[in-house]
């Protein structure tokens, strides 16, 4: 009746629309799996304790910290990263706006910031500046003054 504890678990999931199967050590977290095993290095690791937001990806369409989820928990889910998460085209509009507004310096926070912004525009297509600042409160950018990021999201929403 009691399931046997496992050290490795087979998983099968979709990543950016592609089916991926793997047998993974259970302690591997999602972002290490995406980066290390799948080579999806667009998602970054900034703190490994859920504060900086650099590892944020979409799991079943929901913004998720890649460092706070085991890869085996992503079994049977649909994971999207900066490399592929653009079914709606919203991301491309944001990328162009970020470029024009110089809403990026070192670029380390940028992929997660873009995913957060795209999700904001999905749930709130015309956000105010304050709503944008509030929404990205979990995404640390250490280089810009956040203002160009807010400008770019406003521009993309227009």
């Amino acid at each position: 009746m009691t399931p046997e504890p496992q050290s490795h678990v087979p998983i099968s999931l979709k990543v950016n629309g592609e089916l991926v199967t793997a047998e993974l050590p259970v302690r591997l977290n999602l972002v290490d799996f995406l980066r290390g095993d799948l080579g999806l290095t667009g998602t970054h690791i900034g703190c490994e304790h859920g504060i900086c937001g650099a590892c944020t990806v979409l799991v079943d369409g929901r913004l998720t910290r890649g460092c706070l989820m085991l890869a085996v928990q992503a079994n049977s889910t649909n994971v999207e990263t900066i490399e592929g998460a653009d079914a709606s085209g919203r991301l491309m509009v944001l990328q162009h706006a970020f470029h024009r507004s110089n809403a990026i310096q070192c670029g380390f926070c940028t992929p997660a910031m873009l995913l957060s912004a795209a999700e904001l525009l999905r749930v709130n297509p015309r956000p105010t500046r304050d709503e944008i600042r509030d929404w990205i409160s979990g995404n640390l950018c250490r280089c810009t003054g956040y203002q160009a990021i807010v400008d770019a999201i406003i521009e993309a929403a227009a």
Binding site: M1, T2, P3, E4, P5, Q6, S7, V9, P25, V26, R27, N29, D32, E48, L70, V72
Partner: peptide, 24 residues
């Protein structure tokens, strides 16, 4: 830092889950 190792159980029923907690 990376998480230390552990044994992983993902119960598929509440009964399994409670049995696991009971055992460990």
């Amino acid at each position: 830092m990376k998480a230390p190792d552990f044994g992983y159980v993902r119960p598929s029923t509440l009964a399994e889950c409670l049995a696991t907690l009971n055992e460990y």
